[in-house]
């Protein structure tokens, strides 16, 4: 039960909130931070552009420049192979913005304000990751539309929805990795640099752009089972109406692992004070 006490006879303060009240407040705080981050998103439409620009860049570049060379090894139209990978990469870009946004809150001193408030501190990250996931959905739809203008065809509407959901999911998992980095280093420029360390190897040593058979043998095990690859393979199966094998299961497993590791880690790092 909630204990209320008035320390000076005029003011009620919550001293020992029940678990139920704590949870309700955590939900309220997460919703509030989400509301704030959504306002920020609408005030900065350029963020949405940044979120999709790399995906579009890869889509155009790889399709028209390398399409012939890489496509020969895939056995079917390269755009049909490429777009699913680009969707996953786009979701990853969105995850990087979680990192950047949280780091900016540290540099601007907004997080210090949040710290001084009677709120659930995890809500600051939780709200932001949800806002970023919502923006990610918008970005993914945008990339899909651009792909369709280039000649891409979804096998089914249901497959398209499932693919975007799965890409958003893996992006959400990586959002928490990004949050952990930001909560640790707390500086925008450092966060930007550190993101490159996980983003680029995962992105390029994956099946997002080229099939694993085209890679050297020693790289193949990593490139087959790392999260970007299994997510790309799963999304590719879904949009092309082809068998997905165990790739959806593996993707969901990766999302679970990312959340299991990085949710507690980022919350711990965020709450840590000198």
């Amino acid at each position: 039960m909630t204990t209320r006490n008035t320390y000076d006879g005029t003011r009620a303060v919550v001293i020992d909130p029940s678990v139920a009240l704590r949870l309700r407040r955590a939900g309220h705080d997460t919703g509030t931070v989400l509301w704030r981050d959504m306002i920020r998103t609408t005030r900065q439409p350029e963020m949405l552009v940044f979120a999709v620009v790399m995906g579009v860049f890869f889509l155009v570049l790889f399709n028209y420049v390398f399409g012939g060379a890489i496509g020969a090894g895939t056995g079917y139209d390269y755009l049909q192979y490429l777009l699913p990978g680009v969707l996953v990469i786009t979701a990853l870009q969105g995850a990087q913005q979680t990192s950047m946004g949280l780091a900016a809150d540290f540099s601007e001193g907004v997080n210090d304000r949040f710290r001084s408030l009677p709120m659930n501190q995890s809500a600051v990250i939780a709200g932001r990751t949800i806002a970023d996931a919502l923006r990610n959905i918008a970005g993914l739809i945008l990339v899909a539309v651009i792909g369709m203008l280039m000649g891409f065809r979804f096998a089914s509407f249901g497959g398209a929805v499932a693919a975007i959901a799965l890409a958003t999911g893996i992006g959400y998992g990586f959002s928490w990795l990004g949050a952990a980095i930001a909560a640790k280093v707390r500086q925008s420029d450092m966060v930007g640099m550190l993101s490159m360390f996980w983003l680029f190897p995962l992105m390029l040593a994956s099946t997002a752009f080229a099939p694993v058979e085209s890679m050297p043998g020693w790289l193949q095990p990593f490139a087959t089972y790392q999260p970007i690859s299994v997510a790309s393979d799963a999304v590719r199966g879904l949009v092309n109406g082809m068998p997905v094998g165990d790739t959806i299961t593996l993707t969901l497993a990766w999302i679970a692992v990312l959340l299991f590791v990085f949710v507690p880690m980022s919350v711990h790092l965020y709450r840590k004070v000198d």
Binding site: I39, R40, V110, D112, R113, S116
Partner: peptide, 12 residues
């Protein structure tokens, strides 16, 4: 708390 330590959100 206000001042050096705690800022407001600039975009809001």
């Amino acid at each position: 708390v206000a001042g050096q330590s705690a800022a407001v959100d600039e975009k809001l």
